[in-house]
Each structure stands twice: as C-alpha cells, then as structure tokens.
Design a protein around this nucleic acid. Structure first.
Lengths: 135, 135
DNA sequence: GCATAAAGTTAGTCGTTGCTAACTTTTCGA
DNA sequence: TCGAAAAGTTAGCAACGACTAACTTTATGC
C-alpha cells in the first residue's frame, strides 16, 4: 500500500466544517423556523466569535446569506449540500444502529464518520440495510 | 439530538495527524529498517518542509526522537500509539471489505474513518467479523 | 576526492479554526 | 420608556498544517 494518496488536508477539513454548519443550520430552520448565530453557538459549543468567523466563510463560499442582526439563510447551494449531508449522515447512523451500536454512540460516531465515507461504502451500507449482510 | 457536543476541533485534527504519522513511521521501520523524512514525504505527498514541521511537533509531544540528519525513531509512547492505530485501522479495513467494499476503496475510507470510530463501534465490528451480522 | 544530487533544515507566508476582549445593536421586562 | 440582558460584530492572537525559497549537510558516482 505504498504511495497511498492522502488528501485529508486543511481544505478537506474546511469543507467538513462547512457541511456540519449547513446541516445544523438546515436542522435549526426546520425545527424553529429560523437560525440565529446563538443556535450554532449552542450546537457546536464554540464562542459567538467563532461562529461569526465561520459564517463569514460560508457566505464567502456561497453557502449562506446573512444580513446584520438577521437570521442566517441558506442559499440554494447551501440547501443542496445540507440535504446531501443529512442523507449521508442518516445512512451512516442507521447502519451503525443496525450493527448493534447504541443510538448514543451511533449519533456521535456518525458525526465523525460521515465525512470520510465514499459513495461505494455508502451504497454498501444501503444495500446491507435493505438486503442483509453479504454471504 | 439538540445540544450535541462537538469536539472535533483543531486539537482532534492534530492528534489524527499524529496517529497517521506514527503509523506510517512504524510501517516504514517494519518494512525498511528505518524511517527517513523522505519516506514520509512520499507517503503523505507533502513537502519535506511540512514533514519537518510535523515531526518537530511529534517530538515536542514525546512521540518520536530525532537527531539532525538521522532517521526518525519512535518513543515507547509513539510505538504504543502506532500499534493501537494500526490495529484499529486493520479492523475497520477488514470490516469494510467484509461489507463488500472493494479493497481499494476500503483502504482509502478506512484511513479517514479510523479516527472517528469509538471503542463500542470497533467492538461491534469485531463481533460481526467473528459471529456474523446481528439478527 | 570532488562535484553534484539527494536529503534535511530554516525562515517566512497563508488559510482555517479556535480563543478573548471590547464594542454595538436589538430585545424585553419592570 | 428606558435600562439591562442577550445577541451580534470586530479586532487581535495562537496553533496547526500546508506551502515556497534559500540554505546546509550528507551521500553517491564518476
């Protein structure tokens, strides 16, 4: 396995954070009708300054729109990314639970795992959930 | 699932990199008897300057020892961490392959996933590899 | 054995993701 | 209504992990 290509660099890490944020924003809007910085402060347990920073980056990258002192809105691209992330997240979590992992642990692990699961692995999970373990 | 606690911060990311490095160093020593910066340059496809940087951090953190222009050595702590990482990595990779994922994809995905798998999930994987899928 | 290639080091820069501190704006209750 | 609490903004700092460029040291091939 020499010459494996590692691409998990700062760029990948950055887009993981972006996915977590748009997912949280979409969830909050679905739950409460709007998403405020403070919702994300609580969700991620970071300071308001950090959230502000990150939101500015998401806006720069065209995933959200904000207006001073107004709730955060997702762009069409942001909504698409959120939907894709959520779906992937749900598959991973369901799969972990089907493995016999407790829902609490499945929730925590799926947060971390979801960003590293390829399409092929995701398809394998979906297939196993539907048709059972390969024989 | 409100109030989920996210701890995947820069600190966690840093320790992921540390694990990848000690694992690669241990593998290289096992293969070729010693590990040089250039081995890591090739392995991670980054520049020598980046490797140097990272190795300095690993040394600061007590995972490796280095001497100018000499091969990189693991400390006892470094070896323990490398062994634990490798074992976890192997379990994840075997599990993915057992799921029907191609070895190539399993290799790539397990690199990313291994850092986010809890003890409980790892145990579930081990159990399924041994006893089959839970009914 | 000496020139050159390979390996390693050092210095400086950038972007991300955290933080604190100080400030402004908005909201709400007495 | 107005004053304090909550929310949001801005500025400045630090660690990490990446880079380039310039340099030194070691190894290698004639």
């Amino acid at each position: 396995m020499a010459e494996r290509i590692h691409k998990r660099t700062r760029d990948d890490h950055a887009s993981e954070v972006a996915e977590d944020y748009v997912e949280a924003i979409a969830d909050t809007i679905a739950e409460k009708g709007r998403c405020r910085s403070m919702d994300l402060v609580r969700h991620f347990a970071v300071t308001h300054a950090t959230v502000n920073n990150t939101i500015a980056r998401l806006q720069r990258d065209g995933l959200v729109t904000t207006e001073r002192y107004q709730p955060i809105e997702l762009t069409a691209r942001g909504r698409r990314l959120a939907a894709a992330s959520r779906k992937r997240h749900e598959i991973v979590q369901s799969f972990l639970e089907a493995m016999g992992v407790s829902p609490q642990t499945a929730a925590i692990d799926s947060e971390g795992i979801e960003h590293h699961v390829s399409k092929e692995t995701l398809q394998a999970m979906t297939r196993i959930l539907k048709d059972g373990w390969p024989t």
